[in-house]
Amino acid sequence: MTDKEIKPWKLLGEEDVSPSPWFPILKHTVELANGSIVDDYYFSPLGDVVQVLAITKNNEVVLVEQYKHALSQVLLELPGGMQQKNKSIVESALNELEEETGIKATANRLIPMGKIANNPTKLRQITYGFVLFDAEFNSEQKLDITEDIRVLTLPAHEVLQKAINGEIWVTDSLNLIFKTALAYPEVFGLKLK
């Protein structure tokens, strides 16, 4: 090990080269810690994401199945979405949960599970995860025009197994499932030492 101090890059310039308001891209000119200049460092400031691992009174996890166009596949994941304009992270989490699943809850019932950065090299996007116990289907889905979502519930231990065996493979969902299983092993049928 060394005592080397890692220093941030110095921003010399920024240009918005976004092809669409739906997919922002920035071009930065930066000076590295070693003095080198990179004049074409591209990344996307997509915005933050919220996700909720909702568990029913019957110890079932609420999942959503939907088509994801970038991969051209139908994927199984936890409900969530982008932080909504003029809404806090918690408000966005509650709204996304209700919109995608028909589960309405209050802020005091959400348990924060931390944050996840999927690709901090090329994305400025943080996913904030929450757990909700005793989730109830007490509202209606309010889907966006691009959403076609099937809601399903599975026993928590089965969801963990699907994450382990690759049936659930979306990064945010995997991380939140695993973090929650470690924090609440009894919910997932685990016996940790």
Rank of each mutant, 00 (worst) to 15 (best):
T2I: 01
I6F: 05
W9S: 11
K10W: 02
K10T: 14
L12G: 03
E14S: 10
V17W: 14
P21R: 08
F23R: 03
I25V: 15
K27S: 09
E31T: 03
E31A: 13
G35L: 06
Y41L: 10
P45I: 08
L46C: 04
D48A: 03
V49W: 12
V49C: 04
Q51V: 06
Q51I: 07
N58E: 14
N58Q: 14
E60A: 03
V61K: 00
L63I: 03
Q66E: 06
K68P: 00
S72N: 14
Q73K: 13
Q73E: 15
V74A: 00
P79M: 05
G80Y: 07
M82F: 10
M82S: 11
M82K: 11
Q83M: 02
Q83C: 03
Q83I: 04
Q84S: 05
Q84F: 06
K85W: 02
K85F: 06
I89F: 03
I89E: 01
E99L: 07
T101E: 08
T101D: 11
G102F: 12
K104P: 06
A105I: 03
A107S: 15
A107E: 13
A107R: 15
L110I: 05
P112I: 00
P112E: 04
I116L: 14
P120Q: 07
P120Y: 09
T121R: 09
L123P: 01
R124G: 04
Q125T: 11
T127W: 04
G129K: 08
G129F: 08
G129P: 13
L132W: 05
F133A: 09
E136T: 15
F137A: 11
L143V: 08
D144F: 00
I145Q: 09
I145L: 10
E147V: 00
R150W: 05
T153A: 02
P155F: 05
P155A: 03
H157K: 07
H157Y: 06
H157P: 05
V159S: 10
Q161H: 10
A163P: 04
I164N: 11
I164T: 15
I168C: 04
V170M: 10
T171P: 05
L174V: 13
L174D: 12
I177P: 01
I177A: 03
F178L: 15
T180S: 15
A181V: 01
L182T: 14
Y184T: 07
P185Y: 14
V187M: 11
G189C: 10
G189V: 12
L190P: 04
L190H: 09
K193Q: 06
